[in-house]
Write a protein that binds this DNA or RNA. Structure first.
Lengths: 198, 198
DNA sequence: GTCTATATCTAGATAGAC
DNA sequence: GTCTATCTAGATATAGAC
């Protein structure tokens, strides 16, 4: 055969990775199959050798995204003495607001997930519960963990709905401060040094 | 002429009201002009007697939505002794999760706003600032006001991304509790002016 | 496995009759 | 002001050559 034995898998992975980024920037429904395939150097027709339908790609894409998000939160094992708080701050950064294609899917694809099939929402529910479980362990309270996630997602939606950089900064700053407070209050610790802007 | 002098305005208002609801349920980009006009008993072609383009409708629709939201929050003058907290609880209700067409535009149209023209985002920024200003007065702290808004928007996105009613309830309950805490803490706290960096 | 070509459908928007 | 008919462009998906 003219293609290596791993070729198909490589193409699939490349398509998946590129599509995730493109969908997070421009939306999934509003992006055509041709554009997704062109991004990896192929024509639209070749798509159907890798996925039976555009909807099937969406499902795989969402599953990859939720796994990635869980790893982003739990996988940080670096020099910081509080990796969770560091993750929350990175989430609430100007960089994240400006680069949706590298960030969380919920502020960009959330409404499309809400309209998607039960299967898609089941996958998201499962992943979010894992994230919540991990965060809950760190914070010490289940409710506060949900609230922290909600506040982060909402802050990104708000910031990206604003036109001026100043307003975006205000929201991020306010939410970072409140996340810090919530986090510290629940952990019942003395006040930590103030956060540093990114 | 065959149509009353107020006919055009009536049609425009009906179109705007219906389109707002439809867009919040199914998304704006993914809904065609024909469907929007059919909902008020007209054909798609008649649309262009009322708006020059679909994009122009989006702008008007968003402006109407943001005004409506501001009124929803500030306009409650009923028997409750804390109307703001009551509004936040209504926002974080199962009914709101299940009826996006009657609710806030941000959890459904937020990503589309983020991709829209600067004009649209300017209108949203202006409206959100009014809402924030009002809430900030009530809560007594600017940062907490932004955080409350963000948490409410995020909670709806999360709840609508879940499949099971149980998980949706958990999130709403957790965020209601945390909103209560945040609200009470800030209101009862002796004046502690927020530090402003940058 | 990918290509060109195509089938089928729907989108936003316009032309002209009434 | 609304209609039918139509234009142009784009969508998802398939057929068949290579």
């Amino acid at each position: 055969m003219r293609y290596s034995s791993t070729h198909k898998e490589e193409i699939r992975n490349k398509l998946l990775a590129n599509s995730r980024a493109i969908a997070k920037r421009g939306g999934f429904e509003s992006t055509g199959v041709d554009a997704l395939m062109k991004a990896i150097g192929l024509t639209g027709a070749a798509f159907y050798n890798h996925f039976p339908s555009k909807q099937a790609l969406f499902q795989s894409l969402i599953e990859a995204e939720i796994d990635h998000s869980a790893e982003m939160l739990a996988g940080v094992q670096n020099a910081s003495d509080d990796p969770v708080l560091q993750s929350l701050h990175r989430y609430l950064s100007a960089y994240h607001v400006d680069h949706p294609e590298q960030g969380c899917m919920l502020p960009t694809l959330g409404p499309e997930i809400a309209r998607a099939t039960p299967e898609v929402r089941k996958a998201v529910e499962s992943g979010l519960k894992r994230i919540h479980h991990y965060l809950s362990d760190q914070v010490g309270e289940s409710d506060a963990a949900w609230a922290l996630i909600a506040q982060c997602v909402g802050a990104l939606i708000l910031a990206r709905s604003m036109e001026s950089d100043e307003a975006r900064r205000d929201i991020l700053h306010a939410c970072r401060r409140t996340v810090d407070d919530l986090y510290q209050i629940r952990k019942n610790r003395p006040k930590a040094p103030p956060s540093v802007d990114s």
